[in-house]
Design a protein around this nucleic acid. Structure first.
Lengths: 160, 160
DNA sequence: TATTGTTATACTCTATAACTATA
DNA sequence: TATAGTTATAGAGTATAACAATA
């Protein structure tokens, strides 16, 4: 995607390299995790998010926002995960409109099983190609970009 | 995705930031380009690839490899683009099994129309959050990673 | 009235396998 | 035999709009 965007070739170079690298590695991890544990990359991400939330679980809308998908789309995915016993939904006590999703022990186990596969692909395709020093540089730069992007208004708010 | 991957938190930090940044920006460009010219991000990428190939056009399998999709999937997308008159398929002269895809003048026009929308989103969400110096650092690091990944065997070869 | 979550629905996309034609 | 491309098919995923329940 360079030719038609010659307004700023030097700047776009960074973006295009970022984009292609992310897509190549993500695609590979998706296949690998799918083969290993039968989870989509998107599904693994959902599980990990919920796992990170701890015992308190996580509200449906909050998950959808974090993952940048529609609420109906998330309902579909959570239903899939619930069918497999990896996630459990319970009504919220604080706000009876809300639903809290918790990861089950089976879900935790599956994440633990999937993790090394995921990490191996990321290592082989990305980490091993960057010096430790550059890795830190990358992380510092991209962390700050991501944090600023997170400030932006969320999906569930915008869609109304 | 940090908790279950604590084997190498510092290293994974770079990858996770890269991944989330790429996805956030790509998602936003997709919506923007779709609203502006009715093209999927994936379709725009196809058009740009073919446009870059110049007058010689590009072979179906080569496009599929570059974009990391199956050949049947590409046939579907190219058919969509052909219906809209943005792409034209012609049999190859050199090898009669092959089909060459060329961008039409309407296709070129649409890419030109889409480009500023695309660039604007990338600028607002990414480029503006990184100093020019860091942008160069990023580009240099990620360019080299991408180039190494491109060395890997292609999809159309692996699937046999 | 606004928000949460689900459902009904329709559509887009993608892949696998089978097939034709050419090398 | 191997490769290029298409097609038939089926499945996964996503979104929009309408809805019920709660705030």
């Amino acid at each position: 995607m360079s030719t038609p965007f010659q307004q700023s070739p030097e700047e776009m170079r960074a973006w295009l390299a970022l984009l292609e690298t992310a897509n190549l590695v993500q695609h590979a991890t998706d296949r690998r995790v799918r083969d290993a544990v039968g989870l989509t990359f998107a599904q693994l991400e959902i599980l990990v998010r919920i796992a990170e939330a701890g015992d308190g679980g996580m509200r449906m809308t909050d998950i959808a926002d974090k993952l940048v998908v529609s609420r109906s789309g998330l309902t579909y995915q959570i239903s899939q995960l619930e069918k497999r016993g990896l996630v459990a939904r319970t009504p919220s006590i604080d706000d009876e409109r809300s639903v809290i999703a918790n990861i089950t022990s089976a879900g935790t186990e599956l994440v633990v099983t999937a993790a090394p596969h995921y990490v191996e692909v990321v290592k082989n395709m990305f980490l091993d190609h960057v010096t430790p020093r550059n890795l830190t540089v990358l992380a510092d730069i991209l962390d700050s970009v991501r944090d600023e992007l997170r400030q932006m208004p969320s999906r569930s708010t915008l869609d109304r």
